[in-house]
Design a protein around this nucleic acid. Structure first.
Length: 685
DNA sequence: AAATGACTAAACATCT
DNA sequence: TAGATGTTTAGTCATT
């Protein structure tokens, strides 16, 4: 453990990596810059750049000093050991076993950075306290320090110039030429910084390799950047806005090939083996998430001609850029000109790092939540059954009464808003998180996403559970749902009340706002010819006229390649569907219009469900990136408040329920219908 | 731009 | 008479 003795810092015991982190904090907020976030403040651009350069330099400087101190410390220890050995060990060797809390005089070193003099070096050599490797490291370190001193001088000069220029600006307005000159100087300075960073990186690596510097694996090693505590997405957004606005405002032209090296250096110096996720928030429409390793970054772009993580679909994916580049060379040109190593790029990198960190944090949280939910639901749903949870709807439908009743309690909901945006596992986290990063409003997901994501049978069961317990509106029309309910019944007929019960049992969403959706159900029953009312002994039941139902939306899906794809992907998790049926569907593109006559209720239901799903898929593949609508769900949000009044609602209308799963019902399904108590259902039988 | 589908709301009628 | 059930109309929104 170390203690930071940075001039303005309270002494804190720190581990090695923490010390680095801490130092970086200091470097980012030096004593001379007391403003909380000086880099992104609305000061003049030059000031901003100065501060930033200062921060970077200080960080490198601090890291160097730490390394140096470590080395010296080791040196001292070895000297002590030697002395102890010579004095024949008057004291117990405890001190060697247990390392004392090292106090690194960083502040002293930083105030007076010194290169070891030749005499000192000679002394070291004479004493032979260091192994050849350590000596080599020391030499490298000395080189770095010398370079650093040069840099510092240069930096001082530059700062003087900047201050001068600021004064001039205050008095005589702006002078673009001088600005350019300063910018050029800054660029040169940054290049030097870069060299320093690389050197430093090598240095640290070698130190680490030789065991002089240990970064504990469990700990987050060197932080990618100083992340202010409690940084929330909105702050990040604000930060992002500021940076990107600076981007649009200024038109700096640099020419540095290694625009990403800063990121790389930070990442790799902290944890060489660690991969960092660089995600472009503006590429959220694709939900693209590119894994970006330091190694890859260190390669030249030419080695991977058309697989640059910052290039895709003819667009530069540098955050906030989206410039159209016709081909890869032009992209490279653009990258080098627009995203060269300058302060803006650096700032953007830092923001991006923060974004990634936040996303990772968020992902971890959501994963945890999901795990808890699944564990909870699994326990509940398997309570009545000893067998492992089946993968089809049977598991859900045949849930015992206790399980069904327990499930709504498992998800206590607020009266007005749905539960927190629950994320079914079938959806990549990137979709949600990215959109939430740059849209303030509701997150919209296209259904095409849902259908294109390959999901497993387990996911289906989870979706089913998801809709059963989460108040998320199922993306199906009332008509489809009613039909589904009726077809699932053994007699293919249900009373209105039974239909209600089915709704409430199958979808948590319909456990609220009964007046609204019940009215809608009745309305649909009356409106659509496909629903036929049949007088019974004890009232009336509703049946489905399949022919009429299929007349409803004729040929809507024919001839669309994506449909076939979707169909096939659907088939992937429709185990009961036989191959002939699949072939027929794929061939005719009019799936299962005759399934009602097939006699097999399971297949019939399944097929119809698939058809519904496919229709849904069709409807949504065309609605590309409509942020103001739920991707045109076949079923608009059913909520006590109107959509127009509650723009957040459509969000909950989306989610991946595959009704396919519901088709695989068990015969005793209708005996288990008393979700809401009143079981008039036995009447039919 | 018009047609269509889907949803919501509401009024009204009938039945239990 | 109240509530459930069933029918119809109107308005809105999104998609085709």
């Amino acid at each position: 453990m170390f203690q930071c003795v940075f001039s303005s810092s309270v002494l804190q015991p720190l581990s090695t990596s923490c010390l680095f982190k801490h130092l970086f904090y200091h470097s980012a907020t030096p004593a001379s810059q007391k403003q909380p976030e000086p880099i992104y403040s609305k000061k003049t651009e030059i000031q901003r750049q100065t501060v930033q350069a200062h921060s970077i330099k200080l960080f490198i400087f601090s890291a160097l000093q730490v390394a140096r101190q470590l080395l010296l410390q080791q040196q001292q220890q070895q000297q002590q050991q030697q002395q102890q050995q010579q004095v024949s060990g008057l004291k117990s060797p405890k001190r060697n076993d247990k390392q004392p809390a090292l106090q690194v005089p960083v502040s002293v070193a930083m105030m007076t950075p010194q290169v070891i003099t030749p005499q000192q070096m000679q002394q070291i050599l004479q004493q032979q306290v260091l192994s050849p490797q350590q000596l080599q490291v020391l030499l490298q370190q000395q080189q770095a320090l010398m370079l650093q001193q040069q840099l510092q001088e240069f930096y001082k000069k530059q700062q003087e110039q900047l201050q001068l220029q600021l004064l001039q600006q205050q008095h005589a307005g702006k002078q673009p030429k001088e600005q350019q000159q300063v910018a050029t100087q800054q660029l040169a300075f940054q290049q030097q910084l870069l060299q320093m960073q690389q050197l430093q990186q090598q240095h640290l690596l070698s130190l680490q390799r030789q065991g002089l510097l240990t970064i504990q694996p469990g700990q987050p090693a060197l932080p990618l950047q100083p992340l202010p505590q409690g940084m929330i997405p909105t702050e990040l957004q604000q930060l992002w806005k500021e940076v990107t606005s600076a981007h649009s405002a200024e038109e700096t032209t640099g020419n540095n090939h290694s625009s990403l090296d800063l990121t790389t250096t930070c990442v790799s110096s902290s944890a060489p083996s660690k991969t960092s996720l660089i995600m472009n928030p503006h590429a959220s429409t694709n939900g693209q998430l590119s894994v970006h390793t330091p190694k890859r970054e260190s390669m030249s772009h030419e080695e991977h001609p058309h697989s640059h993580p910052l290039y895709g679909h003819g667009v530069c994916k540098w955050p906030g850029c989206e410039a159209v580049c016709e081909d890869f060379p032009s992209f490279l040109k653009h990258l080098n000109s627009e995203h060269a190593l300058d302060d803006r790029s650096t700032a953007q990198c830092r923001v991006q790092m923060q974004v990634v960190q936040q996303l990772e944090l968020q992902l971890a949280k959501d994963k945890e939540r999901l795990q808890a939910m699944m564990t909870h639901l699994h326990v509940k749903s398997t309570e009545p059954k000893a067998a492992p949870q089946p993968l089809n709807l049977v598991s859900s439908v045949t849930l015992s009464k206790s399980a069904s009743e327990a499930s709504p309690q498992s998800l206590p909901h607020t009266p007005t808003t749905p539960t927190a945006p629950l994320t079914p596992v079938t959806q990549g986290p990137s979709v949600i998180t990215t959109t939430s990063m740059h849209t303030v409003g509701p997150i919209r997901r296209r259904y095409s996403d849902k259908y294109n994501v390959p999901i497993s049978s387990a996911d289906i069961a989870q979706n089913q559970e998801f809709y059963k317990n989460a108040e998320v509106r199922p993306p199906f029309t009332y008509a489809s749902l009613i039909r589904q309910a009726i077809l699932e019944s053994p007699e293919k007929q249900l009373t209105l009340n039974e239909i209600y019960n089915w709704f409430t049992r199958m979808f948590a969403y319909f456990r609220r706002n009964a007046a609204t959706w019940k009215n809608a159900v009745r309305h649909n029953l009356s409106l659509h010819k496909c629903f036929v009312r049949v007088e019974n002994v004890k009232g009336a039941v509703w049946t489905v006229d399949e022919v009429e139902f299929q007349k409803r939306r004729p040929q809507k899906i024919s001839g669309n390649p994506s449909l076939i794809k979707n169909m096939q992907s659907s088939h992937a998790y429709c185990t009961p569907l036989n191959a002939a049926l699949q072939a027929s569907m794929a061939e005719n593109s009019i799936p299962l219009y005759t399934t009602a006559s097939m006699g097999n209720p399971t297949l019939g239901n399944l097929a119809s469900a698939i058809r519904e799903e496919l229709n849904g898929a069709m409807e949504h593949t065309n609605s590309n990136e409509s942020d103001s609508s739920p991707g045109r769900s076949p079923m608009q949000p059913v909520h006590p408040v109107h959509v127009k009044e509650e723009p957040l609602d459509p969000e909950e209308a989306e989610g991946p329920l595959s009704l396919v799963t519901t088709a695989n019902h068990s015969p005793d399904f209708d005996h288990d219908r008393d979700y809401e108590d009143e079981a008039v259902n036995e009447d039919i039988e």
